[in-house]
Each structure stands twice: as structure tokens, then as C-alpha cells.
């Protein structure tokens, strides 16, 4: 699994670098975050949750059945708004709340 960092949005705050459980995101010479070892990414999305400017997204690779859709998120306290943007531009939004237990 691999996330994508949009460097034009990145402010170099280092949140994602700190939080990644695998220590695989680093800052480049322009002080922008980049995934140093893309094949080592676990897809846990800790980095995405930590990014204050939504610079990080995830796309499902074709071998996992990806059709080009992109997952992004925005957190607001205990609520997280997840958005899947499909390749045809249609969107699907799901809201999770850590104060609501899973039903399964």
C-alpha cells in the first residue's frame, strides 16, 4: 500500500514524519515531506490523520483491485470525514465518530 504526498500542499510541519510507525517519511531538501521507502508503507493512514493541510491521499494499487479512486480525510475532534473520489470524479463521503461504537 502506498500513500501519495502532494508536495505543493505540504508545509513541512513534520507531523507525518513523526507519527509514521515505520519511520519511512522524510523531508527533502526543499523541506517537503516524501515517502522515502514507498514499498514499506503499511497503509495504516496515521500520516493522513496527522496532516493539517490534507496533503496526503491514498490510492488503491491495481493489484489490490484499485480502479483509480482516491481516499482522503479530514478530522474534526472526534469526527472524521472520509472521502473516496472515484476516477470518474464522483464522490462518496462517510463520517466516522470515535464516540460511536462499531456495530460489528
Amino acid at each position: 500500500m502506498s500513500i501519495t504526498i502532494n508536495q505543493s500542499k505540504c508545509t513541512g510541519c513534520k507531523n507525518c514524519i513523526c507519527i509514521c510507525p515505520g519511520n519511512i517519511i522524510r523531508l527533502d531538501a526543499e523541506r517537503k515531506a516524501y515517502l522515502k521507502r514507498p514499498s514499506d508503507c503499511w497503509g495504516c493512514l496515521a500520516c493522513m490523520k496527522s496532516c493539517p493541510v490534507q496533503a496526503i491521499t491514498m490510492m488503491l494499487p491495481p493489484e489490490l483491485g484499485g480502479q483509480g479512486g482516491k481516499l482522503s480525510l479530514r478530522t474534526d475532534g472526534h469526527r472524521t470525514e472520509w472521502t473516496v473520489t472515484r476516477s470518474d470524479g464522483t464522490r462518496r463521503t462517510i463520517i466516522t465518530d470515535t464516540e460511536e461504537a462499531n456495530q460489528y
Binding site: G43, G66, Q67, L71, W82, V84, T96, N102
Partner: peptide, 25 residues
Amino acid sequence: DQEESLYRAYLNMSPVQTLKWIDSG
């Protein structure tokens, strides 16, 4: 409704699975 709950359940544990369900249609 059950499907929606599963989407949320997986986002809270293994988000790639929810992405797969939605992305694949």
C-alpha cells in the same frame, strides 16, 4: 444499513478495505 456500518467499521481498523469496496463499486 449493515453495509454502511461495515464501511465505518473497516475505516476504523483497516481503511484500505472500505476503499476497495467503494472504488470497485
